[in-house]
Amino acid sequence: MIWEVFRQEEPGDSHEHVGNVHAPDREMATLFARIQHARRMQTNSLWVTPRDEIGEVTAEEAAFGGRTDKSYRWAMTYNDIDASFAEEVADSESEQREAARKRREALREEENEA
C-alpha cells in the first residue's frame, strides 16, 4: 500500500507533499516516512495518508472557467482606484497580480501545446 507523505518544516508552515512510502498500515507508514522524508530535512510534523484516499483534480479540470473573462474578480481590474492608501489593500493587489500572471502563463502554455 502506498502512503503519501506531507512535511511541515517549521511550526506555522503548511504541510507540503514530499513523496511517499510503501507500508502495510498507518503506523508503519509513519515509521518509514520519518526515515525517508525527515531524516535530513528539518521537520516539525509529518502527515501520511493512503494514496487511494487522495482525490485528484487534473490541470485540465482545474482550468475550468479559465478562458472567459473573469477580470471582475481581480483587484487590478479596478485600475481607476488607487490601492496605495491602505497597505493591506495594496499587498492584496500585488499578490493577485502575481497569481493572475501565473495563471495566464499556464493557460498560454496549455494553448501552445494544444
Binding site: D69, S71, Y72, T77
Partner: peptide, 11 residues
C-alpha cells in the same frame, strides 16, 4: 450614463 464594464486590463 453607461453601465460600468470591468474587463481585462492586463495581458
Amino acid at each position: 450614463e453607461t453601465p460600468v464594464e470591468l474587463r481585462a486590463t492586463e495581458e
